[in-house]
């Protein structure tokens, strides 16, 4: 187990290196620089700014300098938010995104799991068709359609909930619901598929033959195997949720990491872009590792020999 974790962490290092390199040269090769957009900025001030951030050095020198700092855990200062370190900005924006992600995941699980289990138990019944068609609709109604529609219904027409912002609990309902419905629909489909496969297994028949009640068969025997595909999906889904959907954050004007990232890319805030991308990458790698560990505990077959 420990060996598995160590190997995975070691494997992550080349991945992170590739990401850092790719992002570094992508941002630098793009037209425009961080101090180009401001009007009326005197040439000598611009030069001083660039010298201050080390932008006048040759590209490869900047690259090695950045990697060196990175090894010491230093993401560098932001070019646009003067006086702010990139790590400070991420620490400020990430909790907002994480909160949104956790709420949405909660909604998704509460809606998706029972729906999937019921659909699987009553396979090909009216329940099944209703639930699965709703789930399909949820998947095909993308968040950027669902979000505005929810705003239109609940804030413009009914006036129950605020349309944007991130200050009070009421602000969190609509964005979390938008994301949660989408992922919930996905989870419902995966749960159904997983449960159907498990319910056909011999050990379920054995449990039934031994006279276990239907509820016990589901909760004690079937659910463990049935949830496997959901757990596999949760890794990338959770990463997507936590890293804050860019779309949701821009629809509802939520000051999360996703919006910071897009703004930083527009502003050519090199260090901020690099920092955010690396942060996201680490997050995804860690979450995938956690998911693999959960999977191994649920399914003995997937454990490495």
């Amino acid at each position: 187990m420990v060996k598995f974790i160590v190997v995975r962490i070691l494997q992550a290092i080349p991945t992170l290196f590739v990401i850092a390199t790719l992002t570094f040269f992508m941002t630098r090769l793009a037209p425009g620089g961080p101090f180009d957009s401001e009007k009326n900025i005197p040439a000598e001030i611009k030069e001083k700014l660039e010298a201050h951030f080390g932008l006048e050095k040759p590209l490869h020198e900047q690259y090695f300098l950045y990697l060196g700092n990175l090894l010491q855990g230093d993401l560098g200062p932001s070019f646009k938010y003067m006086g702010w370190e990139v790590s400070e900005l991420i620490a400020k924006a990430f909790p907002v995104s994480a909160q949104l992600g956790l709420f949405s995941l909660l909604i998704a699980l509460v809606l998706g799991l029972p729906a999937g289990v019921v659909a699987a138990l009553r396979k090909n019944s009216a329940y099944d068709y209703c639930l699965m068609t709703t789930a399909m609709l949820g998947i095909c109604l993308p968040t950027f359609v669902m979000g505005p529609l929810l705003i239109l219904l609940f804030s413009s027409w009914l006036g129950w909930l605020p349309p944007l912002g991130w200050y009070s609990f009421a602000d969190m309902i609509l964005p979390s619901l938008t994301l949660g419905l989408f992922y919930g629909a996905y989870i419902a489909r995966l749960t159904r598929a997983g449960m159907l496969e498990t319910l056909n297994q011999d050990y379920i028949r054995t449990a039934r033959a031994k006279g276990a009640s239907p509820i016990r068969v589901v909760l004690r025997h079937a659910i463990k195997g049935g949830l496997l595909p959901v757990v596999t999906f949760l890794g990338p889904a959770f990463a997507g949720l936590i890293s804050g959907s860019f779309i949701i954050e821009s629809i509802f004007f939520i000051p999360g990491l996703g919006r910071f990232f897009v703004t930083a890319a527009f502003n050519r805030d090199y260090t901020m872009v690099l920092g955010t991308v690396l942060f996201y990458a680490c997050l995804i790698i860690i979450l995938n590792l956690v998911v693999d560990l959960i999977q191994a505990s649920l399914d003995p077959k997937s454990r490495e020999p």
Partner: peptide
């Protein structure tokens, strides 16, 4: 394991 959506957005921006 690359965060590809992020790269696509980055590329387009």
């Amino acid at each position: 394991s690359l965060p590809f959506t992020i790269f696509v957005i980055l590329l387009m921006v």
